[in-house]
């Protein structure tokens, strides 16, 4: 299943490059924009959310995440409380960057993503753990998701 040659999705690299040109303040604004644009949760998943399944427990505010693989492509659905725009924005960025990629490409996303996006400096170390947890969760679920044919 793992493809050692896979690299991260091109869309993610493009977002990282875009962030690299941003001033610190613009990186935060971009995160807010991502948070604003997060698609609402499909109705059938909202019921499961209410049953507290698929919750990412490392996050400070309720975060619900579904990672599926359909036709070899990763699909991510999420719901995050409006009180947590930082997690919501980061997650929306990941959904934008990783949706449609192969599981191997998602697995190839490195732990240093938050550094590469320049978010450690603008948000502070204290806020990194919850964001890392979201990335780990997506990678793990993408690798474990049963492939549908």
């Amino acid at each position: 299943m793992t493809n050692d040659a896979a690299s991260e999705p091109a869309r993610l690299t493009a977002i990282v490059d875009e962030f690299a040109d941003f001033e610190p303040r613009e990186r935060l604004e971009a995160l807010v924009e991502f948070a604003d644009q997060m698609a609402p949760l499909p109705a059938e998943l909202a019921e499961k959310r209410d049953a507290e399944a698929h919750r990412v427990h490392e996050c400070q505010t309720p975060v619900f995440l579904w990672v599926e693989v359909r036709d070899g492509r990763v699909m991510i659905f999420a719901d995050v409380a409006p009180e947590a725009p930082t997690v919501k924005g980061f997650l929306a960025l990941l959904i934008d960057a990783l949706s449609g990629a192969s599981p191997a490409e998602v697995a190839a996303v490195h732990d240093d993503l938050l550094q590469r996006l320049g978010l450690v400096d603008v948000l502070g170390m204290m806020r990194m753990r919850g964001l890392h947890a979201v990335l780990y969760y997506i990678r793990k679920q993408a690798a474990a998701a049963p492939a549908e044919h």
Partner: peptide, 9 residues
Amino acid sequence: DEDLLLYDT
């Protein structure tokens, strides 16, 4: 706030 971006929302 706990969440830095809450102010922006």
